[in-house]
Each structure stands twice: as C-alpha cells, then as structure tokens.
C-alpha cells in the first residue's frame, strides 16, 4: 500500500521521534510512504491571522500530494489532519473561495482537485490495517500496563460520529497490545498545545492538569498521537509540573513508539531516546528485551 505522507512543521523541525517511529512502524506494516516534493506549513497557525493564507497553505500541500498520484494522504499530526479536512470542506462548499485559491495555486503551477482522501492515523491503523494484522506483527504484549490514552482534541472533535468513534478505536489499538486503557477524568481534555502561542502559562497549566489526572487514576504511562500534544506532555513535562506546583512524573510515549516496541523493533530506531519523560525506564520495566 502506497500513501502520501505530510509530516507537519513540528515533526520536521523538532519532534523527530514522531517521524522516526511512524516511518519504522509503517514500513514494518508494508505501507510505503511517498513524500511530498516540498513541505510547507499546513496553515493552521494562519487561521488566527489570515484565513486566505491558512486555506492557501492547506490547499498547496494537498495539491502537492495529488501530484503523487496516491489515493490517500496521511499526517501523523492531528492538527494538520484537521486543517486539511477543514480546507477540503470549505473549498468544496464555497465556489468563489475555490476560484481565489486556484488562481494563486496556478502561479505555482499547482492545482487542487479535491481528489485525494485525507485519513487520520487512527483510522489508518484500525480500518485500513486492522487489529488482526497488527496482532500478527506483535511479538511482545504489555500485560498489566495501565495506559492513560490521550487521543487529543483534533483526533475526535471533528468529523461528527466518525470522529467520536476514534476514542474507542484508540482504546482498542492500545488493548491489542495487551495493555489496559484506563478511565481518567482528564481523558477528553485538551493538553493546551494550541494555547501556547497566546497564553503560554495557561497552556502549561492545562498540560500539567492532564498529566496530574492520569497519575491520580494510577496510569503507568500516557500514550498520545499528535506531536503538539507530545511536546506539551513529554518535552515540557517539567515546565508543566513547575507551573502547577506538583511533582509530575509519568512516561509519555507516542502510540507508534509503543506499537514499534511491541513489534520488537529496537528503541533507538523508534526515537525512544528523544522522550524526556522517562520512557526508557518504562521499557526496561516492561521487560521486553
């Protein structure tokens, strides 16, 4: 299966573990990734500055993906996924907007025709690959591991019923690894990632409260998908702790990294060394290798 991949600004410039683990695990599953010829921002930050800019940036990347002649475009970043779906919908509905954007795309010899399907990573793993196929590849199970699942706002607050189903799909994807996706009060809460540009302290408070909730309910680790969430909860875990004045220590790991570990892939190949929140100790505890 060959699909186009859009990495997203954060993954390309600092959240390298996301790219490493996604590349490794998808290749293990026989999914060939085709890059876009250029990478520019998906446009999400521009939604707060200039709507045309946001739309144009999204349409540009989708147009580049269409050049690849693959049916599907994925992004490991939920925010980028949401922006593409938003742009796809708006350009379908508003003819005059589409004309405006088409004119600008023409300047770059690009065209967006609404042909490419944009799929979320959770749907890719659950619907396209399927739990059965994952089971075949799993070598190690994490019995007794209590996982606080963090699907992230942009995974399930869009796409109506289909979006909501992603919460239970994510739980299923965790349970297929033998772990237990526990209930915790903050499960559906926002990590604060989008608030950082305008209100950094409040954003860290949100991240801290999320981590606190997971710890309160006895989670052994927190699993996320989107690099923006991961940056708040893993990379900025110490800052978040300091902001809410509580000692928070909980391993935060990308789902793709956890999946890769269960496949038996070496931690360095999944970027485990890049997690700041003590994931290496977690892996040692799991006695996998």
């Amino acid at each position: 299966m060959k699909i186009s991949v859009y990495w997203g600004c954060l993954t390309l410039t600092s959240e390298y573990a996301c790219e490493l683990s996604t590349r490794k695990v998808l290749s293990e599953l026989g999914i060939e990734l085709e890059e876009l010829s250029e990478y520019t921002c998906c446009g999400h930050p521009m939604k707060s500055i200039n709507l045309t800019a946001a739309l144009y940036l999204a349409a540009r990347s989708m147009a580049l993906a269409e050049k690849n002649k693959t049916e599907i475009l994925i992004s490991p970043c939920s925010k980028c996924y949401e922006t593409f779906k938003w742009a796809e919908d708006l350009l379908k509905k508003d003819e005059s907007l589409k004309k405006k954007i088409d004119n600008i795309l023409k300047e770059e010899n690009l065209s967006y025709n609404g042909e490419i399907s944009i799929i979320h990573m959770i749907d890719l793993l659950y619907d396209y690959v399927g739990v059965e196929k994952l089971k075949e590849k799993i070598k190690f199970e994490f019995e007794g591991l209590k996982v606080a699942a963090h699907p992230g706002c942009y995974a399930f607050r869009i796409d109506g019923k289909t979006g909501l189903k992603r919460i239970s799909k994510f739980d299923a994807l965790i349970e297929v690894l033998g772990a237990n996706s526990i209930y915790y009060a903050g499960k559906l809460d926002c990590c604060g990632g989008n608030l950082r540009p305008s209100r950094p302290e409040a954003a860290l408070t949100l991240a801290g409260e999320k981590l606190n909730s997971a710890i309160e309910f006895g989670a052994g680790c927190l699993v996320d998908f989107c690099p923006h969430c991961h940056e708040m909860l893993d990379y900025r875990q110490e800052e978040a702790s300091a902001t809410i004045g509580k000692k928070l220590k909980i391993p935060v790991i990308y789902y793709m990294q956890l999946l890769g570990i269960s496949f038996g892939i070496k931690p360095e190949e999944l970027g485990i060394q890049l997690n700041k929140s003590g994931v290496e100790e977690l892996i040692k505890k799991l006695n996998v290798f």
Partner: peptide
C-alpha cells in the same frame, strides 16, 4: 454542563 467526569 458539557461533560461529566469521575473523580478518583
């Protein structure tokens, strides 16, 4: 209310 949560 928007949500119902359980406390520990």
């Amino acid at each position: 209310p928007s949500e119902v949560k359980a406390e520990s």
